[in-house]
């Protein structure tokens, strides 16, 4: 464990707590893409089921349980408790355009052609693009509540911090994971436009608004 990865994980943890806080305090999931949240459940379940046969550390297991549990809970909140505040008519991204290519890529690029490793690859590829329905929704509505942008910023910073972690690990441990690194760079890249508006507007106290 190094500082970049620890801060990345904490940023990921924080993003989910911010999202839960937003939903609970406003009693609304307005502005949140159900499709993106459902994709995260698929990502976490596909990747973290190794919880049952591979023990790394208490930290590792606790985080995996938290990510699976919290993402399922968020889906429950959106689908049941705050269902009237969820507007599917603006959440129109076609997720089959993400699922099918990720499934194909995971069959081609994996570290071992076995179900668990293919699922791992699939989760890495899917995570890298899972934010697209959310960003697409943001693009459509053109604006977002500040708290929603804090959630997205924390989520983007998480994977961005994994990049220096991989560079650090390459030089200190000699390990390199080309699948995770490639997908991680793509994932971070998808946030660049968002980061630009977030850092130049929201953090200066202005409203998050995209140019028309």
């Amino acid at each position: 464990m190094n500082l970049f990865r620890l801060l990345g994980d904490l940023s990921h943890l924080a993003s989910i707590l911010v999202l839960l806080h937003k939903i609970q305090t406003s009693r609304s999931c307005r502005g949140i893409s159900f499709k993106t949240q459902a994709l995260y459940v698929a990502v976490f379940v596909a990747r973290y089921l190794d919880l049952f046969w591979r023990y790394i550390s208490l930290y590792n297991s606790a985080m995996k349980v938290f990510f699976i549990g919290s993402s399922c809970y968020i889906l429950y909140l959106m689908k049941y408790r705050y269902r009237p505040t969820n507007d599917p008519s603006i959440d129109t991204f076609r997720i089959e355009y993400l699922l099918v290519p990720c499934a194909i890529l995971s069959l081609i690029f994996n570290y071992n052609f076995m179900p668990t490793e293919i699922l791992w690859s699939f989760s890495i590829f899917l995570e890298s693009v899972a934010i697209l329905p959310q960003l697409f929704m943001l693009q459509r509505t053109g604006e977002a509540e500040a708290i929603t942008t804090h959630y997205l910023a924390a989520l983007g910073i998480y994977r961005a911090l994994y990049i220096p972690n991989w560079i650090y690990r390459y030089f200190t441990e000699g390990v390199i994971d080309p699948i995770a690194v490639t997908a991680g760079i793509v994932q971070t890249g998808l946030y660049l436009d968002f980061f630009y508006v977030y850092f130049t507007k929201v953090l200066q106290g202005q409203k998050f608004e995209l140019p028309a």
Binding site: M1, R5, D9, H12, D50, R54, I56, S57, N60, M63, K64, F67, Y111, N112, E117, Y162, R169, E173, V175, D177, I179, A180
Partner: peptide, 10 residues
């Protein structure tokens, strides 16, 4: 071994 990816990352 191609399966030697670091398995401690989340």
């Amino acid at each position: 071994n191609p399966a030697d990816r670091p398995k401690d990352e989340l």
